[in-house]
Simulated scan of single mutants.
Amino acid sequence: MSRKKPGVILYGPPAAGKDTVTRALAELHRRYGQFARLKIGSGRSVGYRMGTTAQLRKLKAADDVVYANLRYGNTYVLDRPGLDSAFAAGVPVVHLGQIDGIRALVNGYAADWLVVLLWCPREVTAQRSAGRGDSDTAARLAAWDATREDLDAHPDLAWDLTVDTTTAAPQDAARLIDQLLMRQAGATTA
């Protein structure tokens, strides 16, 4: 039986359903909660812990940055203190769009990570982005392209679960994730 706490990584392009599946997980069981990455920059603040460059420097100096990436003109950080707090509260669901981020998290933060690929075609990302009122759909499509290139460059990466969000309901994806995570953690019931 594992001694590490379970966590979920949802990987996929913009508008693949990471937020929607995370909400479905939280509705399924209150133990699940989205990990609020530290965001240095501007724009949307919902779902993030807004930080400063001084705060980022302190985290780097303390070797508390597990992974950081630049996208949409902002810096997004997976930080050790934030992850510690998220695990203390339950099962964190971490959203990522870079395979380097998955590897950094799996190798840099001790947990039983369930790694899930959520996917949708590029045209679906465009439709969903426009439908939710994004003002930066072109940037999101560029991120979709980068995600596809990232996947193509890492064909060796093994996914615990792959979900096509154009055919699977968020609640079904959440149930599958929960079942796999509980099995991985050695639990018999959710």
Rank of each mutant, 00 (worst) to 15 (best):
T165W: 01
D164V: 04
M1Y: 10
T147S: 14
G131C: 03
D150K: 10
D156R: 11
A36D: 09
A169C: 00
S45G: 14
S2N: 07
D134A: 13
Q55V: 00
G47N: 02
D152I: 05
V116N: 08
Y76D: 02
K58G: 08
D134S: 14
L118H: 09
T165L: 04
N74Y: 07
P13V: 06
D84N: 15
V8G: 05
L70H: 13
L180Q: 15
R3S: 14
V46Q: 01
L83G: 06
A24F: 03
L176I: 00
T165S: 07
P92V: 08
Y72G: 03
L105W: 04
I9T: 05
S85K: 12
P6F: 10
A61I: 04
K5G: 05
A190M: 12
D112E: 15
I9N: 05
D64W: 09
L96T: 12
A158E: 13
R57Q: 13
Y76R: 03
W119G: 07
V94Y: 01
G7C: 06
D64N: 13
Y67C: 03
V163S: 06
A89G: 03
K58C: 07
L70N: 11
K18A: 02
D178K: 00
S135L: 14
Q184N: 08
R57L: 11
A130D: 14
D100C: 08
L28P: 00
D84R: 14
G17F: 02
V163T: 03
P14L: 02
S85M: 05
L181S: 04
K4P: 00
R103I: 09
G33C: 04
P121M: 08
S85F: 00
I102L: 14
S2C: 00
L59H: 11
P13H: 02
L151R: 10
A130M: 14
A68H: 04
S129G: 15
A126Y: 01
R128C: 01
P14W: 02
V8S: 07
A146Q: 12
L25C: 10
S45M: 03
L176D: 12
L118V: 06
D178S: 10
V8M: 09
L10I: 02
L151Q: 08
V65F: 09
L105I: 13
V94A: 06
M182E: 11
L176K: 14
I40P: 04
T188V: 13
F35H: 15
L114T: 08
M50L: 15
S85D: 12
Y48G: 01
D156G: 13
A190F: 11
C120T: 12
R183C: 03
D160R: 09
R37C: 03
R175P: 00
M1P: 13
A146D: 13
V65S: 07
Y32V: 06
D156A: 15
G7N: 06
N107W: 09
D63P: 00
R122G: 05
E123H: 13
D19W: 01
T167I: 14
T75Q: 11
I177P: 04
T167C: 11
V8L: 08
G97T: 06
V115C: 11
A54R: 12
D150W: 09
G47M: 01
L181F: 04
G186V: 06
Y32D: 05
T125F: 02
Q184G: 01
V91M: 02
T166W: 04
A54F: 02
